[in-house]
Design a protein around this nucleic acid. Structure first.
Lengths: 323, 323
DNA sequence: TCGGAAAGTGAAATCGATTACACAAAGGCT
DNA sequence: AGCCTTTGTGTAATCGATTTCACTTTCCGA
């Protein structure tokens, strides 16, 4: 069932049928005739033929490091809610934290597979920037600032600074920090710097150098807490780059006889469901992940329609959640 | 840059170029000439033109109720790992538990948007079955048994039966159950029935009717636990349809002076990360979600290639996790 | 009443691939 | 040598839409 058959049934030309679907000029009688035939046959124009002709795929590509993650899941949900409302489709690829796959998918999407790309990023190599510069379709970056590119991200630095300040305000004197890998700019680097600067500014005598580096797994948080204590002694406050790490830390501490929060106050980032179920609940930072996905799509659509975004960078707020 | 230009540059016909990319018969010299031109120009055939001509989109559609969920996230990750390895792409839609959207997306995918569909299902109305029967592209159903359709699911009934048996074996006498909505066949109905039958078979005098129905949210688990206690008195063992519900229940119990596990033993389903961070850890059932996604794609590919699956239904195993 | 603008229409070109068909050349077999 | 298969090749049709172009008709204002 193609446009020509519909045209014949309705007694019009295929151009008329095309105009019917694309709000072109068409007389009332023909419109009605076509409407009737379309209804009877259940005809729908072929998406692939339209795509071939118009060079618009009505799809956007999304690249994420993984999908079974609370924060990224929420970003994806935000993206999807806007995308589907607009009659677009979402093509999803996960890199499993493999930078090469990231480049590969960028290249695949670049080859006319999609109208635009949203990249939920963690790490940027020179190669990444090269690849991004050579993209023929617009790209919006989420979760990371990259100057010169449209991006939407959170103020991880200030969040971490404020979180650390809160621990000092609660009377803690000796802090420790468990970082994520520093190559991850937002989660690794920015959050660490926020912590470090807060300690330098507010922590009389407390050393910002008392930190270890963990992977994203809870188990790693557990392990690295042991390492932290061994190398730098016992803190009375512990800031962790993510909630998962913080939960691992809490478990280690509890198993080794520390009372929480009396002996050690533990804080994380992300406001994950996890953070609410521990007792006591973790002190954590809430980021609006879903919103960041929604905004990213809106920016992308703007780029698609006008060729540029008014707002090239969007920095989103946060709040600290206690209890 | 299209196939004709490449053909001209290489001094061959466009048919030869097409054969070059599709393993058609072609002489060694022409193959080499084309290879060189392709390399120099970076040419890649247009996916949309290929799709229009061959009627193969190399995309599969996936419909899920939500994506920011631990179990579904893992299913999606499993799907994606196989899909991307095979040079296919995944089109993802979330229904937000809205059955109408589910039908809508089925219809969209049915219209030649994708080669096949994977439906991560919760509820089946008559309309759903109708829609599924009228699909022109193959569909594989995940997380739910639907006879007559290819599906991959877990043995929720037996898992729940064994879990309940375990509580009895641990000496518990008076159990309670917090169910999910019964319309959800696997999570709501099957798990409840497994519990009920275990209680009837093994629980001398214990009443299977002591249950309440909760939504999937942790908060609802909290609330409904209060209702359960109020209506049916104090149990010494509590089985919950999901880990989230169980966590909510645990919080309620603890806040109301119950010791866990001494006074009440709490069990859930899903082996979520959540279940590991509570103290004591939840007793829970591990389902292989990622694997179910992988198997679903394999079944779909088989359907795509041969027109039928050897194994139309796959029932996956489980194990109970204590501590 | 006339002229130009606007509305409506269909034929045909176009997007960029795949593939049926016709045919030539080469190879293998009696 | 003669015949049949296999291999290699290009031309042209095809997939199913959109859109340019040329043209007719209608409308509106002076």
């Amino acid at each position: 069932m193609n446009i020509a058959e519909i045209a014949k049934l309705a007694g019009v030309s295929s151009a008329a049928v095309s105009r019917y679907f694309n709000n072109g000029r068409i007389s009332e009688e023909k419109r009605e005739a076509i409407r009737r035939v379309v209804e009877e046959t259940g005809y729908r124009p072929s998406v692939q033929a339209q795509t071939l002709r118009t060079r618009k795929t009505k799809m956007i590509g999304v690249i994420v490091p993984k999908v079974a993650s609370a924060s990224i899941g929420r970003v994806v949900e935000g993206i999807l809610s806007v995308v589907n409302e607009s009659g677009y489709q979402m093509l999803l690829s996960v890199t499993q934290n493999n930078p090469e796959k990231e480049l590969e998918y960028l290249s695949v999407f670049n080859h006319k597979q999609v109208d635009g790309v949203i990249l939920v990023a963690t790490i940027f190599s020179e190669e990444h920037k090269q690849a991004l510069r050579h993209m023929k379709v617009p790209v919006v970056i989420v979760a990371q600032e990259l100057s010169g590119f449209p991006c939407v991200y959170h103020d991880d630095y200030r969040a971490s600074y404020e979180l650390t300040r809160l621990l000092f305000e609660k009377g803690r004197k000796i802090l420790g920090y468990i970082s994520a890998i520093r190559e991850d700019r937002a989660v690794g680097e920015e959050r660490f710097l926020g912590y470090r600067d807060a300690v330098r500014d507010l922590g009389y005598g407390c050393l910002a150098e008392h930190y270890v580096i963990s992977s994203f797994a809870m188990e790693s948080g557990y392990e690295k807490t042991g390492e932290l204590l061994e190398r730098f002694g016992r803190p009375d406050g512990l800031v962790c780059a993510t909630d998962s790490i913080a939960i691992g830390a809490m478990q280690y501490l509890r198993e080794h006889g520390f009372r929480i929060p009396e002996d050690v106050l533990v804080a994380g980032h992300g406001d994950s469901t996890l953070s609410r179920v521990t007792s006591p609940p973790l002190i954590t930072v809430h980021y609006s992940y879903k919103e960041s996905g929604e905004i990213a799509v809106q920016m992308l659509f703007e780029l698609l329609n006008t060729g540029e975004t008014a707002q090239r960078e969007v920095k989103l707020g946060f709040y600290i959640r206690e209890q």
